[in-house]
Design a protein around this nucleic acid. Structure first.
Length: 259
DNA sequence: AACGGAACTC
DNA sequence: GAGTTCCGTT
């Protein structure tokens, strides 16, 4: 049922994560939603995390991202849409334009001025009318859905991030707001191609396939695990579906295209 | 590393 | 429409 499209690896995205009104019916998760989700999980803070200014995040380990070249291209398309912009001077760092944005549909962002500090950082910044967002400690049961049906790990989110370094289980981060990361490995994109093999559909690929269900489960820790079967929102005619069959966009790619 | 055009897929 | 994949350029 549902609204919640369960896509793999434990990632269950609720309806709001899918294309909004603009594209009713679309069950393709949007990249920025996915990025936001990753940003919320500590497990991935070694790979991508809030950093610097409000809304600014950095891809700490592009080497872990399966194909930064493609990912970054997708991100660049957000420039015109004003969803993101590049933080110049800081490698692999982008910034969400929370101001004018899009947060419509993103329940985790509280448009109210709540003083709750972000778990992982983004400094509160008042930009004019906007807002201050925060990620609620516990998820609204109406939006998120846990996964009770964790099925094939690796179907959707499998490869953008090859592995959450450190330990998936206990990201002792301690510093997400730190300074800059940089030391970019500058790895040739081509090399990463070798490892991707997973198929799935969308950004499902940012996470390493080898994450266990349990681990993935934790991503939604705090989420009531009982809402899964129900509709969170009657999305306009959304049909219950599982992840798109399409091959993982970000991850596959060039394997056979070597010719 | 970052950008962006272009063809292409879904 | 939203990427995905390539690829030339800066």
């Amino acid at each position: 049922m549902t609204i919640i499209t369960l896509c793999v690896a434990g990632f269950a995205f609720p309806d709001w994560a899918y294309k909004p009104e603009s594209s009713p019916g679309s069950r393709q998760i949007q990249l920025w939603h996915f990025i936001l989700e990753l940003l919320r999980k500590e497990e991935y803070h070694d790979v991508i995390a809030w950093q610097g200014d409000y809304g600014e995040f950095v891809i700490k380990d592009p080497d872990e991202v399966m194909n930064y070249d493609k990912l970054s291209r997708a991100l660049r398309y957000y420039y015109n849409k004003r969803i993101l912009h590049k933080t110049k001077g800081k490698r692999f760092t982008y910034k969400f334009n929370f101001n004018k944005l899009v947060l419509v549909n993103y329940p985790f962002i509280d448009m109210e001025f709540s003083a709750v500090p972000l778990p992982f950082c983004a400094p509160p910044v008042p930009t004019g009318a906007s807002t201050h967002f925060r990620f609620p400690p516990s998820t609204p049961s109406e939006v998120l859905s846990p996964n009770e049906d964790l099925r094939s790990p690796g179907v959707m989110f499998s490869s953008v991030v090859r592995r959450a370094r450190g330990s998936v289980s206990d990201c002792s981060d301690g510093t997400s707001v730190n300074s800059e990361i940089e030391e970019g490995p500058a790895v040739p994109v081509e090399e990463r191609a070798a490892e991707r093999g997973v198929s799935g559909g969308g950004y499902r690929s940012i996470i390493h396939p080898r994450l266990s269900h349990e681990t993935l489960f934790r991503m939604y820790q705090g989420t009531p695990q009982h809402t899964l079967d129900q509709e969170v929102q009657p999305a306009t005619g959304s049909t219950p579906t599982l992840c798109p069959p399409s091959p993982c966009p970000l991850c596959l790619g060039r394997e056979e295209r070597v010719s």
